[in-house]
Simulated assay, not measured.
Amino acid sequence: MSTSMGVTALDHSVQETNVWLKAIDEQLALESRHHAYNALRAVLHALRDRLPPEVAAKLGAQLPIMVRGIYYEGWHMATTPTKERHLDEFVAHVGRELPPRFPIDPLAAARGIYEVLWERLDPGEFEKLMAHFPAQLRNLQG
């Protein structure tokens, strides 16, 4: 019986991840779910790397299981948090995480992902998360 529950949980996580990717695809007017995945991954990694490890873990705990896997992929906790204080530094970090010739600029990707996070996460928790960023990095959502 537990095997069935485990598969159901994974199926639900796949569905939930697809809902997130569809929301990102629509928010950013991208041409594919693959681009939505790349944008989500790039911005989540830039956010994660800018946060103190204990705050990064709190954000990770709020994400759907599969999105959480994307978030933690390749994380080296000892090298965080980065010291990006200005918008251009953060956007450059997002840009380094995006594949070459990505169809939208990194700032637009970051703004779109912030919007989706704002919609999908608990607003109070998202506000606490944003309090750990300098004002320039806090106010990306339109």
Rank of each mutant, 00 (worst) to 15 (best):
H35L: 10
Y71V: 10
W20K: 03
G60R: 01
L40A: 02
L107M: 05
H35T: 08
L63F: 13
R120M: 05
P64T: 12
F133K: 06
R138W: 00
D122K: 01
P134I: 09
Y37W: 05
P123Q: 05
A46P: 01
I113S: 06
H35I: 09
K83T: 08
K128E: 11
Y71R: 07
R48G: 12
L121G: 06
E16C: 09
M130Q: 13
E31A: 02
P64L: 04
N18T: 08
N139A: 12
Y72K: 05
P81V: 00
R48L: 10
L117Q: 01
V43K: 03
A110M: 13
Q136K: 14
T79V: 15
E115W: 10
A56Q: 08
P53M: 02
T82D: 15
P81Y: 00
W20E: 03
M66S: 08
R101V: 14
D88P: 03
N139V: 14
M130L: 14
M66D: 07
K128P: 13
R111M: 08
E119I: 04
E127S: 03
M66W: 08
G60W: 04
A39I: 01
H93N: 11
W20S: 11
A108S: 09
R68E: 05
S13P: 10
P123M: 12
R33K: 05
Y114P: 11
